[in-house]
Amino acid sequence: MTTARGATLQALVLGLASLSGCGVLALTHDKMLGPVSPAGRIHSVVVSNDYIVTERGLVGVGDERDQPLFRPIPPGFPRRYAEPASMVKGLRGAMAFLRGLSFVVWGRTHTGRVLPEDALTVLRKGITAAEVLAALGTPSLWLRRKGGSLMGYRAEVGTFLSVSLGLPPLADQFVPIPGLGNIRIRWHYNIIKPYKTLLVFDAQERLVAWFRNDPDASERRLEQEATR
């Protein structure tokens, strides 16, 4: 009697295991039949749709494009392609296209905020980190060390200028004169300067030193070295 009960229990456990979301049968069913199966995706129902099991444990699945089987269009197509992030990407693509067609392109790029000179006048030894934050704003980095901390502000300013004489890249394809696309002279100049300020605090969060770079002085110095 006991043996019969044990065998039944074992069969039940095996059956449940084979039908569970992570079982071989369930995964094979999901892979082979997937969305067209009347049972749907067993693994998604059991384990949930938002996680998959990897060697690193449970990992969230945030991208709906990971489930594209038998779908005529990607899931959430109108919503995803109408969201602002997609608009920004489209705008960047259009700008790159227009730049390719333009004879002269000049522009500046900014990453971060360059600290103004007058803001740095508040810096003096002994002021607290709170006072620095109030005067300079949020830092790019604040790193605690054994004997104090480091607070860094960083910004990049880029300047680019491109001058192109000749037919635009695509236009020469429509003019049936061989070699016409060769008649093109292009001059491209791109400089990205970092503006860095690093403040050193002691263990009591009092400012003990600060350092700032001057990329313009370095550039002048480099030119002097090059012409020496």
């Binding site: 400089i191 001057d214 990329p215």
Partner: peptide, 11 residues
């Protein structure tokens, strides 16, 4: 094509 690019502070 003539290109000049630099990035960073060479200080």
């Amino acid at each position: 094509t003539l290109t000049t690019e630099w990035r960073g502070d060479p200080g």
